[in-house]
Write a protein that binds this DNA or RNA. Sequence first.
DNA 1: AAGCATTGCAACCGCGATCCA
DNA 2: TTGGATCGCGGTTGCAATGCT
Length: 404
Amino acid sequence: MGRAPCCEKVGLKKGRWTTEEDETLSKYIKANGEGSWRSLPKNAGLKRCGKSCRLRWINYLRADVKRGNITTEEEDTIIKMHNSLGTRWSLIAGHLQGRTDNEIKNYWNSHLSRRLYTIRRPIGEDPPTIVMDLAKIGGGYKRKGRTSRAAMKKNNINMNDSNSNNNKTLSCKEVLTEKSVGKSCESGHLIDSMPLQEESMRNDVELVADLERKSMILDTDMRVEERHLPAQGLSLDGGSRSLLSEIERSEGACLDGDSEMGILGPPCDLLETSMLFWDDIMGDGVLMLPSENSVVSEEKENGASSSYREGDMGLGSCTKGTSSEVRESGDMSSNGESGEWYSSCSTSSCFQDSHWVTPVDEDPNLSYEGEELLSWLWDDSDINGVVGKMVECELEDFSAWLLS
DNA sequence: AAGCATTGCAACCGCGATCCA
DNA sequence: TTGGATCGCGGTTGCAATGCT
């Protein structure tokens, strides 16, 4: 026997709520309080499912629901917390007063997940993981379809501002390797349609770096031993502490109370499989290491050898598929030349299973050579060739900046 | 002006967690 | 202890609105 329906569906209204329904629901809850959602519609005289009533109340009718644009500060918080928590929207919403999980989820799916794009390298290859802000990179990207409602209200959106200052525009088709485009993904079609401005590259990289630096700082907040924080000018506020508690609870098995780094310290022998992140490139000196309990899988096909931590894919989920599947799914990683691609969701994949964080200056072993990194960036053998080719747009500036 | 493509977001759905008799 | 009821969450869908051709 299947699960009983949450409510009697016959005769119930679905779809958008009317003003009258909103008023009825609001009046009833103000008079009787929240709860008893199953019986609420009947008692209130609404032809709605109890779940629908609850959703409507929580997301829109409650007095403390904050409407309007997500601010840049809120956006930062969402990005940071998503890095740490993944898609635990209700938890994230708990740290944004007046915002609902549904709103944040929608904002992420419609804005941030499209904008932030992670290019990652299988571990074991001294890999940077680079998060690129496609919206920024594609400064001249013209979107189709509706703009945000908030933006429409303001009626001042101008997606093409960056065009005006650029002399030469390269299409991404010219910039990306054929192979990369062929293995493009959801973001790929975005790239495909976006002109890439040489002039804006440096600014774009800096913007992304700044964005990621902020994320990294929060990750540092959450994961590094607290005694390291003052040296970085950081401290744990109340929200961070509670968040840390959540992380500890959810990742209990990953905590290593005996490690020399304290609450979330890294065993040094994990350095071999370390992952360098964008902030490393930026010189922030923060190294993230994989979690101890991550599974390392080996893929050796067609002569290509690489390893991948399956746990990287966000809260334990990992999908492996063909390029066409990846194309549908968003972020991606290659396992080399095997033709198989791993898809993941959003920037969180960089962090969620990277449980160990330490300032580089705490450990002299944690270093890398900029030249090697640049060499890797130039590698045209797989997806990273995308980066190489993008860098090609402004190689001199990028090289000077990278090695400075 | 019409039709199509695309987006943003409200709402729905299924399922696991929790409550409680 | 058990099982039904309820809650809460995250993923997904549907569609109105908008821009582009």
